[in-house]
């Protein structure tokens, strides 16, 4: 893990994040327990684990959806968990998100061009007249035909919708894209094409991905670093190409749970 020791490469550092929730019976649930992860610039960091391991809670903390109980997330010299609402809004220009189910992430009454360009319009970057042109350009980047600008989300397949979601995330030219189970709802062949697209965009634009997933076989395809979580704690951090060699018992359990075709 030599590259992580080089601080110049580190774009975002998650430092000792702990998040506790108070349950209705008065007990405390510790969803994230002292989590430290360095996110390298232009690389893919995958966070894997079973449901309930705290990976989504961690992402929500990074996105500022809720505040951590303790710890901080440093990004460009600032703790982004302590931003004012105004600063938080500006921060979203640099960090965008792609969700698991694009069907529920879109307003069904909006056309693709308006969906894709909404972030740009919201920040006042382009005028209404530029929407169509910019939407076409973004669709080209995600390998969709330009004619899709006038479609509605329901008249596209799941894979096409996920490409539109990626186009929307790209619109503001962010440094980081957080993908929360972005391919879990898709069929294998479609999943494969989306991963290829993400990798292509990373190579072209140097985007940093934080990829939340429970499928180890999938993350082994394209991650530079894999963080394995269980019950709110980081069990192991290892290089993406060293996943098969892991000796950690929990990682081994996860690896053994994958059914191979042959």
């Amino acid at each position: 893990m030599s590259e992580q020791n080089n601080t110049n490469d580190c774009l975002m550092s998650i430092e000792h994040i702990t998040k506790e929730f108070k349950l209705s019976d008065g007990n405390i649930l510790r969803a994230c327990n002292d989590i430290c992860i360095d996110i390298s610039k232009g690389k893919t960091t995958a966070i894997v684990g079973e449901s309930g391991c705290g990976k989504s809670t961690l992402v929500k903390t990074i996105m500022g959806i809720h505040e951590p109980t303790s710890g901080r997330v440093m990004f460009h010299g600032k703790d982004i968990t302590k931003l004012s609402n105004k600063e938080k809004r500006q921060n979203y220009r640099h960090i965008q998100m792609v969700f698991q189910d694009p069907a529920t992430a879109f307003n069904p009454k909006m056309k693709v061009k308006d969906l894709i360009c909404e972030p740009l319009r919201s920040f006042g970057i382009i005028s209404k007249g530029e929407v169509e042109e910019r939407a076409k350009e973004l669709l080209r980047q995600v390998d969709l035909p330009e004619e899709f600008v006038n479609r509605y989300p329901h008249s596209m397949s799941g894979g096409q919708r996920q490409r539109v979601a990626i186009a929307r995330a790209l619109a503001l030219e962010p440094e980081v894209i957080v993908c929360d189970e972005a391919t879990s709802a898709l069929d294998v062949s479609v999943q494969d094409s989306i991963i290829k697209l993400l990798v292509k965009l990373q190579q072209e634009k140097g985007i940093t991905y934080i990829f939340i997933c429970h499928d180890l076989a999938l993350v082994s395809l394209f991650s530079h670093k894999v963080v394995v979580m269980q019950k709110g704690t980081v069990m192991e951090q290892l290089d993406g190409d060293k996943l098969a060699e892991s000796t950690h018992p929990y990682t081994r359990d996860l690896l053994n749970a994958v059914f191979s075709v042959h």
Partner: peptide, 25 residues
């Protein structure tokens, strides 16, 4: 699975990620 005949089945099989298999990066 070992000897697929149609192109679609071949594509499907090629899309399945395997641990320690091919990598895109």
């Amino acid at each position: 699975l070992t000897n697929p005949q149609s192109n679609y089945t071949k594509t499907l099989l090629a899309s399945v990620p395997t641990i320690g298999g091919k990598r895109y990066v």
